[in-house]
Write a protein that binds this DNA or RNA. Structure first.
Lengths: 333, 333
DNA sequence: CATCATCATGTAAGCGCTTACAAGTCGTTT
DNA sequence: AAACGACTTGTAAGCGCTTACATGATGATG
């Protein structure tokens, strides 16, 4: 069933059918109705390849996410998908894992596909200032399609970034912990991502301002997983009176460890998580966490995406969104 | 940059370039190398539309999921994506919500796209036996592309289902609760899905076998959400000594409610969740839950999908996978 | 009534690929 | 040396659509 069949059955040419399909105004009402009727009867849908081949927009966006089973990223994908669907766009989702080579491969594969633009979630993509990050492949990809980074920051042509003020939030939270008398603050992170680095920098700055010497045994790089966090603590038994984790799963691990060993939270131990996921509500006491306004970040990204695609007007390349702290039972203030 | 450019630069015909691109074995090593070099130099990627238009497979599968931010479904998507990617397939992900009209619309949109098959996650799709479910649109969609249901069961041409033995597990678990002296068992569910119905049927059967009259105030239909479960219980204060929930989030809500009111778990209250999500490990005590072998279900689905696409041999339409119970701290046995 | 603008419709080229089939090359066999 | 087979390469048709341009129909105008 193709456009020729429809044309024949409605007694018009394929050009007319095409016009009807694309809502051109150069078709008489009578003809339009006639053709629409046949289309409906035959349950005909145009071949997307043929459409794409003749130069139209693909109406699809590629989304790359390191791990969709991570609640934070899943929420981001859900938000993005809704916005794209609203605009009749499809989403090609690829789950790359965290390694740069994997990402590069997934990006390549997505770019081979029918996409108008690409969204990269997760801040493993970092700015030119952060020397340790190899962003070359991202900049290369951006030469083919506009690229949108969520929680990333690469300052280059055709790359659009949205991220949150993690440094300021982390600095502020750590300071507050110190003001409340904590001075052995465990910092837990699971990645070398851009946002993780910003959080760490804020933490370190707060320590420095308070004159507390950074303690390497309190700055741990572990996997973002409840059980592995517990095992890590069981093995190393660090001496701490507060914990600041870059994701809620690790913070929950700390809480479980504390409860198991009879440490009173928040009296003798303060715990702060990040990303304000469902996990933060599962525990008793509930977890204090940072809400980094994922919905706003995603909306912002998709809005700018469509601005870029429609080509109208200037679109800012870098946008920052402010987090808020959600005070719950694992901290006092 | 198209196949003609590459052909010209390598001094061969477009047919040869195409053969190199598709890994045909009818190309001499020398020529292959020459062409590959040019392709690499020019960073050329074939146009997917042209490829698709000339009758090949689309190398893409549509996946429809009610809510990707649900951990269970996100895990399913992650597993499926990995398998598809392994085979060089792309995934078009659509998040429909739970209403049938929404699903229908999303299915239609996916079918307009370049997909070889479609996977529907979440058991809102049920068998012809379950009269209340309108499966007409699913059967219609299956006329266009092979359809794969995860946790669904529709017995029709071109529809392939994988589901778990929820009835047996539910029957067994409820019986065990009764054996342990519980007789006011709260049943919590969030949907009218096929698997939810099977779970409920097992629960009711166990009550009947034990001669316990079903109590409507103990069979609740609520939203699958920690906070809403807590609110529900605070409002209704049902009288129960055990709880069987069709998803972990609700079970966690019950646990929180119990802790808040000083009820001792599992001594005075047994709680069983379902889907064995990360939430089950966040609480203290940890949640007893049912592992319904999501990985196996997904693997099974994708394997059958590729069997169907490659067209070799008979592919069974319905497959059942056995769940296991993960005993943790919210039950005694 | 001839002329022309206006609008609706049709014709045909082209998008970039795959692949059946034709043609060419080369070494082997008779 | 002719004939053949095996392997490599090229030619050209066609996939189903969009769209520039050509054509045709209709009614208004001089």
């Amino acid at each position: 069933m193709n456009i020729y069949d429809i044309a024949e059955k409605s007694g018009v040419s394929i050009a007319t059918v095409s016009r009807v399909l694309n809502g051109s105004d150069k078709v008489s009402e009578k003809t339009k109705e006639k053709v629409m009727k046949v289309i409906a009867e035959e349950d005909y849908t145009p071949n997307i390849f043929a459409r794409g081949l003749s130069g139209e927009s693909t109406r699809a966006v590629g989304v790359l996410v390191p791990d969709i089973s991570d609640n934070y990223m899943a929420r981001a994908v859900a938000l993005i998908e809704r916005r794209l669907h609203d605009k009749d766009y499809n989403m090609l989702l690829s789950c790359s894992g965290f390694r740069a080579e994997e990402k590069e491969e997934h990006i390549r594969m997505l770019l081979e596909e029918r996409i108008d633009a690409m969204i990269l979630i997760g801040s493993t993509y970092a700015g030119s200032d952060t020397k340790s990050h190899n962003t070359g492949y991202i900049e290369k990809a951006a030469q083919k399609k506009p690229l949108f980074l969520i929680n990333g920051d690469v300052d280059a042509e055709n790359i659009f970034c949205t991220f949150s003020n993690d440094y300021a939030v982390s600095l502020d939270l750590t300071k507050k912990l110190i003001e409340n008398g904590r001075n052995r603050i465990l910092f837990l992170t699971d990645s070398e991502s851009y946002s993780a680095k910003k959080k760490k920098a804020g933490y370190e700055q707060a320590l420095e301002e308070a004159g507390i010497a950074p303690n390497p045994s309190l700055m741990c790089h572990i996997r973002n997983n409840i059980e592995e966090t517990v095992s890590y603590l069981e093995e190393n038994h660090p001496d701490f009176d507060a914990c600041f984790a870059t994701d809620d799963a690790m913070a929950v691990g700390v809480l479980k460890y504390a409860m198991k060993h009879g440490v009173s939270v928040p009296k003798d131990l303060s715990i702060i998580g990040y990303n304000n996921s469902e996990l933060a509500l599962a525990t008793t006491p509930e977890l204090t966490s940072v809400d980094n306004k994922l919905e706003k970040i995603c909306d912002d990204t998709v809005i700018r995406l469509f601005s870029v695609l429609s080509g109208n007007g200037f679109v800012p390349r870098r946008t920052s969104v402010a987090c808020t702290v959600v005070q719950r039972g694992t901290t006092n203030h």
